[in-house]
């Protein structure tokens, strides 16, 4: 769509420009205005909570409770940040590091496993292939509680509960990543290429590591990104398998802080809000920087 429009803009003839407009319901100017107003209102609804959060993170306690929430009053962002990072001996930094560790390392391992599996499923016809794929798709329907509770019991028997391993190991197996990797392999790795490599005498492992993985960088990045977001957002698994606060994720820590507000009578509202804002930042940077991959991932997910 964008392509045709660009071409139209370069063209000198106005007639062509009109004909190649994306969808000319735009012909009535009133209609177009109506659509834009609708979209603007929806965007305002989507954005105002984030705006409020940003404003709230710049206020001190008094201003937070007494001034209009949608506009600034004083500038205490640095104080609030200082408070977040020093509260409880800087436990917030520890949680941030944990979240990065679980999401980063876990997703990296999970992506490698998924790429190998997706490649195996898409390009080899071995007995039981359909069973493996059925497991992948069927597991989309399994409720997390059905997996997480017995996993907790199994992990506690082998002493993994309350260690980073309890978060990292489950990340290695992600059926949705496998599904995506299979779809990407089907669209990027031609059979002929593999045949040619085999005729040249390359072994299967060599083909995978030096040809397939290289051609799958885009697909792999998408799989990694979605897995990273998934792990970063996880709540039920860390809540179940992580007990001591030194192993918690950001989500878990923030949840705990919101509970504190009422339990001990200490007001930690601005602490929670500044922390919440901070926890969005890495995600936002990552999503904006990798938006190309992430968009294809979202739409590909829809095609299953």
């Amino acid at each position: 769509m964008t392509l045709t429009e660009n071409r139209a803009e370069k063209s000198p003839a106005p007639v062509v420009r009109r004909r190649t407009r994306p969808d000319p319901s735009a012909r009535s100017r009133g209609g177009q205005r109506f659509l834009l107003v609708g979209l603007t209102l929806a965007s305002a609804y989507s954005l105002f909570p984030v705006w409020w959060l940003i404003v709230a993170a710049t206020k001190d306690r008094v201003a937070l409770y007494q001034t209009n929430g949608m506009w600034f009053s004083g500038w205490h962002l640095w104080d609030n940040l200082h408070q977040v990072f020093t509260y409880d001996d800087g436990i917030f930094l520890r949680w941030t590091a944990n979240s990065f560790l679980y999401a980063g390392v876990g997703s990296l391992g999970g992506t490698l496993v998924a790429l190998a599996t997706g490649y195996g499923l898409a390009r080899f016809d071995f007995p039981g292939r359909n069973v493996v794929f059925a497991c992948v798709v069927g597991s989309f329907l399994i409720p997390i509680a059905l997996l997480t509770l017995p996993l907790y019991l199994m992990f506690s028997e082998i002493g993994l509960v309350d260690t980073p391993w309890a978060m990292l190991i489950p990340c290695l197996i992600n059926p949705f990543s496998v599904y995506l990797a299979k779809v990407y392999t089907e669209s990027t790795i031609p059979f002929e290429l593999l045949e040619a490599a085999r005729i040249d005498g390359a072994g299967e492992l060599r083909i995978f590591f030096s040809i397939v993985l290289r051609m799958m960088t885009t697909g792999g990045a998408t799989v990694f990104l979605l897995a990273f977001v998934n792990t970063w957002n996880a709540f039920f698994l860390p809540l179940t398998v992580l007990r001591g606060e030194e192993n918690w994720t950001l989500n878990l820590g923030l949840y705990n802080w919101t509970g504190k507000k009422m339990e001990s009578g200490v007001d930690v509202t601005s602490l929670v809000l500044t922390g919440a804002l901070l926890s969005i930042v890495p995600m936002a940077i990552m999503m904006v920087a990798m938006r190309r991959y992430w968009r294809t991932g979202v739409t590909l997910g829809a095609l299953k």
């Binding site: 496993v113 998924a114 190998a116 599996t117 490649y119 195996g120 499923l121 390009r123 080899f124 016809d125 071995f126 007995p127 039981g128 292939r129 493996v132 197996i173 496998v178 299967e204 995978f208």
Partner: peptide, 9 residues
């Protein structure tokens, strides 16, 4: 060999 790629999973 292809099946082997799916063994870790």
């Amino acid at each position: 060999k292809g099946a082997a790629f799916t063994v870790p999973f």
